[in-house]
Nucleic acid binder design. Sequence first.
DNA 1: TTACTTTTTCGACTGTCGGTCGAATTTCTG
DNA 2: CAGAAATTCGACCGACAGTCGAAAAAGTAA
Lengths: 198, 198
Amino acid sequence: MKGEKGERRRTALLKIAYRMFIEQGYDSTSIDEIIAEADIAKGTYYYYFPSKEATLEAVIDMMLAEEAERAQAAVASPMPVPQKIVAVILAMRPRQEESGISTTLERSENIVMHEKVGRRLIEVTAPLLTEVVQEGIAQGIFECTNVEERVRMILFLCQRIFDSGHFNERDIEVFVDTVEKTLGAQTGTMDFIKGLIQ
Amino acid sequence: MKGEKGERRRTALLKIAYRMFIEQGYDSTSIDEIIAEADIAKGTYYYYFPSKEATLEAVIDMMLAEEAERAQAAVASPMPVPQKIVAVILAMRPRQEESGISTTLERSENIVMHEKVGRRLIEVTAPLLTEVVQEGIAQGIFECTNVEERVRMILFLCQRIFDSGHFNERDIEVFVDTVEKTLGAQTGTMDFIKGLIQ
DNA sequence: TTACTTTTTCGACTGTCGGTCGAATTTCTG
DNA sequence: CAGAAATTCGACCGACAGTCGAAAAAGTAA
């Protein structure tokens, strides 16, 4: 009939899982390791999570929540449109902790986690960026139809850029060019993106 | 000092693995199932493949080989440029057998396989399409720099379209529009793509 | 306090799976 | 035919996700 103590334990487990998933990757973190770290029996773990994958899902929610909040705040603020775009794109960037150790390096593993984070990130970010772009259209900076689809495409490309070693200048140049053209912006309008990537 | 009989067994195993990976997905196909199907002892299996993942790699090679050959032939032929592009894009389309049962449906599993196939497919296809686009530039159909990067980006988007349920008309319209603009083609030049997707 | 119900915890156990290994068997070679 | 090399075998291992019944802890009502 309670649940408050239980919630705290769940959160604690979530934080441990979060850290370990980021440090060693999802696949190579075993439940046994998590419960050892938490000093907990296996049954207890499965009292709070139905499966390992459910834990990953919850961890991802946790990761995205803060980031989404920050991006949302930026979008709602009275910033100029280009700066809002920067804010949203920055949210797409892999978190420092991640890139530090595992995710970036051994990305042939961790595909599952990486993919899931990516999908969710786009889901969260797309409506925000759509709003910004529509604001830009109202201001005459952009000119296009099918905003929603264009935005999703841009975010998708953005993810690719951040993902693997696709970091050379040419790729970025093509990306910026594509963004400008697909949104119907004047050439050079989006040049500032180049700066914030490297 | 031989290897001919051995090669045949390897190929047989590869074909079994290929079929089972496609029918049930990579993750949910166990080595035990494969060797049962092949009526082979486990040691024999590992005499031919160092690991399950190596088998997947080999299977993917097998899958891509034929497709790449066909695309290559089309590119080398004296077709008009647009038709060559069709040929390459068709090669990106998920194979019928795949979409039939597992890969498309339960794509939350099979991520590993799906991802690997995707990467390899782009690796194989990119140089071909680059060649075609350069031919198009020579003919004045396209006009752009950084062809290699643009092509990779297009293939990437193409994959996304075929991937998940991103199949509505608007997405395709945006895709076609982006391709035209990124290659510097006249509006409408690439409209034929719309037809060949649905 | 006591008697009870509910929530939480425990850890031994199971089944599956990828991979190993040494020995047996077959095939090649001189 | 003898010895070497290639091939096959299957018992075995360790790791791991997940289960289960029972015990302990916490809550409730008298």
